[in-house]
């Protein structure tokens, strides 16, 4: 058995090493290039497809819980008509971060398979844990996703309410705090917050 596989592998190896007799070098280079482009495109398309709100809300775990809550907030409808969708807040826009986040997301497929949050009750039981992952992520990257849209340098503090302007100048201007420290629960309902510092 082992010998059979080895001889087969050796044959494959020989074929791969032998120079091509039928195709020109130009054809092979060009063909390889085109194949590469197609592969790259397909990969990116797949990445884009999984990076849309429709994809996220395809799972009832996401649609029935967090999405319903998002609908009542300013990030779903507002006077300027700019929408923040799930991937805007949950998947970093930079490419390397994107892949890293996708690798983490494979865990969710496990969750789906084993039904960790497939009922509302189970979701509520797990909610604090899930939220803590998100808070830790946003804290670690200095609220990168929020800052993709909201930039402190571009905030006109005179146009904010006095309450907001004063606080932002004091804590954001000095870099002491980041958005998620004070704005937890901006998009979804909060789990039981006893003992969790806010602000």
């Amino acid at each position: 058995m082992g010998a059979r596989i080895r001889s087969w592998l050796v044959a494959v190896w020989r074929t791969m090493r032998r120079p091509s007799v039928h195709y020109s070098l130009g054809f092979l280079v060009l063909g390889g290039f085109i194949a590469g482009v197609i592969f790259w495109g397909a990969f990116n398309t797949a990445l884009e497809a999984t990076n849309s709100e429709a994809f996220c809300t395809g799972c009832h775990e996401m649609r029935d819980n967090v999405f319903q809550e998002l609908k009542a907030t300013i990030h779903y409808t507002n006077r300027s008509g700019v929408r923040a969708t799930c991937p805007d807040c949950h998947v970093p826009h930079r490419w390397t971060d994107k892949i890293a986040r996708k690798m983490q997301a494979s865990k969710e497929v496990w969750g789906k398979l084993f039904g960790t949050i497939d009922t509302r009750e189970k979701f509520l039981d797990h909610r604090l844990e899930l939220a803590e992952h998100e808070w830790a992520r946003l804290k670690a990257n200095d609220s990168l996703e929020c800052r993709n849209c909201h930039n402190y340098a571009s905030m006109d503090l005179t146009r904010q309410s006095a309450r907001a302007a004063e606080i932002h100048k004091r804590w954001l201007g000095s870099g002491e705090k980041t958005c998620i420290d004070c704005h937890k629960g901006i998009a979804h309902h909060l789990p039981d917050m006893t003992g969790i510092p806010q602000g």
Binding site: E166, D192, M193
Partner: peptide, 26 residues
């Protein structure tokens, strides 16, 4: 007070109006 959550889980008002947070939020 738009969208301030006040329920069993969390009380947004107390984030600022609690005794212990007066210095932070004035």
């Amino acid at each position: 007070i738009d969208n301030y959550q006040i329920d069993r889980n969390s009380n947004r008002c107390l984030l600022c109006h609690a005794r212990a947070n007066a210095d932070k939020f004035q």
